[in-house]
């Protein structure tokens, strides 16, 4: 038997194959008429001005940083939640401490205004 992750791997390869087949099929069926106007960047019918790839608003990166902290925390919470019924009060108290530290972090960000969107 192929193991579970092997099956998922085959599905992954199958997905890649399916998308490529669809794109090739579409390429065979569709017209190919190139023109300068068609290949220009869409901006409501006007010529684009300036560069698109500029330095972006810092707010997005702040959110991303906060997200990483919280996401890592959820990874720690997963095994705890699964084994919750087998664990004693000690583990529960430990996790409470962990959650409280996290809430403190959230509170700090709140206070510092990192969660404000201007």
């Amino acid at each position: 038997m192929i193991n579970e992750y092997g099956i998922i791997g085959i599905f992954l390869l199958g997905g890649i194959a399916f998308t490529l087949v669809c794109l090739v099929l579409s390429w065979l069926l569709s017209p190919h008429k190139r023109s300068v106007v068609k290949e220009s960047t869409y901006e409501c019918g006007l010529e684009t001005s300036g560069v698109t790839w500029v330095q972006f608003k810092i707010q997005y990166f702040l959110y991303a940083l906060v997200f990483v902290a919280f996401d890592v925390e959820t990874v720690f919470l997963f095994p705890w939640a699964v084994a919750f019924n087998c664990l004693g009060m000690f583990a529960f108290a430990e996790m409470l401490v962990f959650v409280v530290i996290l809430v403190l972090g959230l509170w700090y960000m709140w206070k510092e205004g990192a969660l404000e969107w201007n």
Partner: peptide, 11 residues
Amino acid sequence: LISKEIIYPKN
């Protein structure tokens, strides 16, 4: 959709 042209803008 499958019979429409796939456009690659030049930029």
